[in-house]
Nucleic acid binder design. Structure first.
Lengths: 316, 316
DNA sequence: CCGTTGGATGTTACCGCTCACATCAGGGGA
DNA sequence: TCCCCTGATGTGAGCGGTAACATCCAACGG
């Protein structure tokens, strides 16, 4: 039928015919089948996002930024969470590739080699978000977590005199951001001539309850602790609540700092000193990069550094 | 080719042939095209979820529960946020229907009539989550926000003696949960012989910063305020921080209560008295209902009440 | 020895759309 | 008057699967 032309290139069809077709479409309640279109055009109009955990407010914002941009281009988001497992991620990538997604967005830069292979040979735009890496699969948008860690560590160290500082981080396996933050912390402390003993570096789940538990444990074992650096605000908030409950003044006796600057960081009291990361922009930027590539354009910046910012509040 | 049989009914093909086919598949790196399959089978293997806002921790958990169940059945999730607008939701439903999704999950029960029409005539399983309604489009899983509001209001009123109580809620337009919570609050107060003046019922955005601003405003205008009921913990947390900053003792001078029992509710100090809702279960339940329907089974319970629970902590 | 049976494999139309090309009608220039 | 050109419309072959049916062959029983 001429139907297809009415929908895709209305200017090439006579006004009268167009009107007739349109009225028929309206009364039959016709809905184009995007699956069939996808099959015929070899382009599904769908992009996949694989995140560690949906319930992380930081991730949610990145995804929000991503959908906003993609939706404006009529592209929808297929989403799944890997639960911080590179193996699960691999399975998801395989499944999504089977769905012929037009692009893939991944949080983090830690993937199995099979994941990388599949993604490369699929020949579709891929954006890794969150952590800058020297060797992206395709494109990457984020900032250097290692550098950010150095910045906040230096600040915290200054506030703590010569007192011992601990690090409470999310599990580092398959989580490059937590890993880089930790290693940045360690390196900076070493350079300051204050190397950190292993018992002052702990791993925990990425939520407030776990952060609180970790803090309880740390301060009972080490009453002279002067500072705690957390790999995420969610953890730091838990730490803060735990200290508060024990009547330990912050930053008077223990200073606290962390990463992300999620909403709660500015509201707790004392306010959290933290590293602000432009998470919405990460998502938007990733969306734009994918769209550009889909439009056939060469993407000039294949490695976008969105930077970070140290936000000094009361906690350190 | 016999290829298809190898994949779908391997027992019907001779072992030797199967081996040969499999080796060829492996070395060519064949990936089945789910788009084509979807077209042929008239079933895409994709379910759509439309939520007001992804960055809401409650919503994120519901979605997490949903994906968990669906993924186990090889079904993926197409997600989009409506930004609390029924019109945007309508557009999204139209788009997703075009993608021939096998099912739809919606947060809330407020939809345009066109949305309802499309969904009904699509003849696919639809689950509305969060608020129980008498007249679901198809299926519904949630609890009565109105009843929950009565429960927490009664509790809060008792704690506040005869002092005035205010309600700080999310914008109620296109948000049935906020609306029902507010109306439950009003009704209960009226029945208690303490009808609430309009200036004690305010609308705000659903985040901590807005909650804090609302609280500041309320207490400066009404120094004798005794209690604040919030329509969500995110708002209540902001309220709590604002009061704390002003040195107003909670619950000594102002008691605070709310809904949702998100993580932060148990960690702030004083802990938030709130209504706990089984959000993960809402998502899982919705997923199960959709899967059952997809499997051709009749769903026994088309209206699932997951209940709620008053969690009394220190704030009220 | 042959017809029958049933398991293994091949064939074909179709799902709804896009794309390249064929066709058709009418107007203008020679 | 005829032909060519052009803009509007029609046609047909895929896209990569599925499902129903056709075919083939070997073993088996009468």
């Amino acid at each position: 039928m001429t139907v297809v032309r009415v929908m895709r290139t209305p200017e090439k069809v006579a006004a009268i015919t167009r009107a007739r077709v349109e009225s028929v479409l309206a009364e039959t309640g016709y809905t184009p089948d995007l699956l069939a279109r996808g099959l015929a055009m070899n382009r599904s109009g769908v992009v996949a996002a694989i995140v560690p955990l949906l319930t992380n407010s930081l991730v949610a914002e990145v995804v929000q930024g991503l959908t906003t941009r993609l939706e404006a281009a009529g592209i929808h988001l297929l989403i799944a969470s890997s639960g911080f497992s590179a193996e699960r991620e691999e399975g998801l990538v395989r499944a999504f590739l089977s769905r012929r997604v037009d692009g893939v967005f991944l949080i983090g830069t830690t993937h199995t080699s099979e994941t990388r292979r599949m993604l490369v040979s699929a020949g579709i735009p891929v954006v890794e978000g969150g952590n800058l890496t020297r060797a992206p699969i395709d494109m990457v948008v984020g900032f250097s977590n290692r550098e950010a860690a150095r910045t906040v560590t230096a600040h915290l160290a200054k506030r703590c005199g010569r007192g011992p500082i601990a690090f409470v981080g999310a599990h580092a396996r398959d989580n490059d951001r937590a890993r880089d933050r930790r290693s940045g912390f360690r390196a900076t402390m070493r350079e300051l001539g204050r190397p950190v003993a292993p018992e002052f570096v702990v791993e925990t789940d990425l939520d407030m309850v776990s952060g609180a538990a970790a803090a309880d444990d740390l301060v009972t074992r080490n009453p002279d602790l002067r500072g705690i650096l957390c790999s995420a605000d969610a953890i730091a908030a838990g730490v803060l609540f735990a200290l508060q409950r024990r009547g330990i003044p912050v930053p008077g006796r223990v200073a606290v700092a962390s990463f992300d600057d999620i909403e709660i960081a500015g509201l707790v009291s004392p306010g959290l000193t933290t590293i602000r990361v432009p998470r919405l922009r990460i998502g938007e930027c990733a969306g734009d990069m994918i769209l550009q590539r889909l439009a056939g354009a060469e993407v000039a910046e294949v490695r976008v550094d969105v930077g970070y910012e140290l936000v000094v509040r009361e906690s350190a």
